[in-house]
Computed example of a mutant assay.
Amino acid sequence: MPDTPSDSVAPFDSVVSRLRAAGCVFAEDEVRLLGAAARTPAELDAMVDRRAAGLPLEHVVGWADFCGLRVRVGPGVFVPRRRTEFLVRRAAALAPPRPVVLDLCCGSGALGAALVAGLGSDGCELHAADIEPESVRCARRNVGPLGGRVHEGDLFDALPADLRGRVDVLLCNVPYVPSAEVALLPPEARDHEPLVALDGGADGLGVLRRVTAEASGWLAPGGRLLFETSERQVRDALDAVARGGLAPETARCDELYATVVIGTKSL
């Protein structure tokens, strides 16, 4: 497909105006992406309809750009955010050679896939897990080509026992939105992404506390847990990491407005 709609569909400016009216801030860029993804004018019309109705752009085109990878996503799957690229960069800087990597609460598997792709998949052992069946199916499409395995279940319950004590890098994109604030999220998120990937409980840290309570048992000596949180939750998140027996620290990226908490298991 060309970068702009063909003569058999509405003119480019008309489609842009329609997406703008639907609340799409970067309507011109979105129309170009939709035009490149569609195989026929009829398919483009249908994609524009879905986008104007509020479906996330990534769900419409079937992929998200994350750390330079084209990560497959689809309806009912959490879309990886650009700010989370900072978490992957920090993990890459801290990872030992030939690491065992675990992407917990993996969604599409974007974090684990991006980390291992960046490090070079040779010698890496990659696992991912999620409780949502649709996310597990999606993650297998992203993680499988890198030799990774995806497990279905609730947090650490999903994992094979032989992984215990061997994980060098535990990436965990836990939900951290307080339950009362989920309704305030943009419609693209609250209406089209799984609630379990958004709702972190009363203070937003319910799932995180479950992770930090068990993470040490799955980490190798010197292994690290990395997760994203909000600025206002940092103190409580650091406390949860320390209570789990890990040495806590934070890393921040002003450009991406990202805050990452790191917990390290002692050698």
Rank of each mutant, 00 (worst) to 15 (best):
V211D: 04
L146Q: 05
G35Y: 02
S6A: 14
M1E: 08
V207S: 01
S179Q: 09
G144S: 06
G148C: 06
E152P: 07
A215Y: 00
G217A: 09
A10P: 08
D49H: 11
A242Y: 10
S135M: 04
P248H: 04
L33T: 13
P56E: 02
L171K: 00
S266I: 15
F26H: 15
G112I: 02
A42S: 09
L185Q: 04
F86C: 01
H59T: 04
C106S: 08
C172N: 02
S216I: 09
G223T: 03
S17Y: 04
R18P: 00
A52D: 04
A110V: 03
F26E: 15
H127W: 11
G206D: 10
R166P: 12
L238R: 13
Y257L: 15
P194S: 05
L256W: 15
P2Q: 15
G62A: 04
R20N: 13
A46D: 13
H192A: 05
A36H: 15
L104R: 01
V100M: 10
V211W: 00
G144W: 02
E85K: 02
L34S: 06
A52M: 04
E193D: 13
C253Q: 08
C253L: 06
C106Y: 00
P80F: 06
V48F: 00
E249R: 15
H151E: 14
M47R: 06
V196Y: 07
A129Q: 00
R70Q: 10
T229F: 00
R81V: 14
C138S: 02
S17C: 12
V136Q: 01
R18V: 04
A22P: 01
A92I: 06
G76T: 11
L226Y: 03
E132M: 14
E228S: 00
A95W: 00
A92Q: 15
P97G: 06
H127L: 08
V61C: 07
V71Y: 00
P175S: 11
G76I: 09
D203G: 05
G148R: 00
R39K: 12
A128V: 05
A139T: 02
D7M: 12
S17I: 05
G217Q: 10
L111T: 08
E255Y: 11
R50E: 13
F86S: 03
A247G: 05
A93F: 13
E193S: 05
L184F: 13
E30T: 08
T259A: 12
G244H: 01
A215S: 14
L94Y: 14
A64P: 04
G206C: 13
A242C: 12
V61Q: 11
C124V: 09
A52Y: 13
L104Q: 04
R50V: 09
R137Q: 11
F12Q: 11
R210D: 03
H59W: 01
V169C: 10
F12N: 10
S108Q: 03
A213E: 11
L102N: 00
V167C: 02
C253W: 06
A189S: 14
P11K: 13
L171Q: 00
A247P: 06
R252T: 11
S179Y: 10
V174I: 12
A21S: 10
L256C: 08
L185W: 06
I262D: 04
V260D: 03
A161I: 13
R164H: 12
I131E: 07
G222V: 10
K265T: 07
W63V: 12
R83S: 15
